[in-house]
């Protein structure tokens, strides 16, 4: 089954940019989008995903709160928090939730380290 990645961002432009970078690195991955944390949680109730990338600054639940909630439910799920808010405190809180931090603007270069780490983790032991 194809690896699936959930992209959570209130900005459509940001979802397009992240989607394009993911497609460039892993063209075979299934990309799923949600425009809020609430929509993402609803989606996750009905289907599973392998990787999540979430924006920080969103209306409603922010990306860090979402990552923390998701981490409690899914201790092993690879999660990345993507934001231009590169404050030390934001990065520290993402790390405390065992989530990767990806600075915006997102590009293939900034996303690659996270996605390559994920590929290694998801590769079945042989």
């Amino acid at each position: 089954m194809a690896t699936s990645i959930l992209i959570v961002d209130d900005s459509k432009l940001a979802r397009i940019v992240v989607g394009k970078a993911v497609a460039a690195i892993h063209p075979d991955w299934e990309r799923i989008e949600a425009s809020s944390a609430a929509e993402a949680l609803e989606l996750l109730a009905s289907r599973d995903v392998n990787v999540v990338i979430v924006d920080y600054n969103m209306p409603g639940q922010n990306g860090l709160e979402f990552a923390e909630e998701l981490r409690r439910r899914r201790p092993e799920l690879p999660i990345a928090v993507a934001t231009a808010n590169v404050q030390d405190e934001v990065i520290a809180r993402a790390r405390a939730a065992n989530a990767a931090f990806v600075p915006k603007p997102i590009s293939e270069a900034t996303l690659r380290p996270f996605l390559e780490g994920v590929s290694l983790k998801l590769r079945p032991a042989s």
Binding site: S11, L13, A14, N57, T83, A84, N85, V86, Q87, V90, K104, P105
Partner: peptide, 15 residues
């Protein structure tokens, strides 16, 4: 698109 662009620019500056 303007909101997201400004968000990235201004957040980087403020952070």
């Amino acid at each position: 698109a303007l909101a997201e662009t400004a968000n990235v620019v201004l957040s980087n500056c403020l952070a």
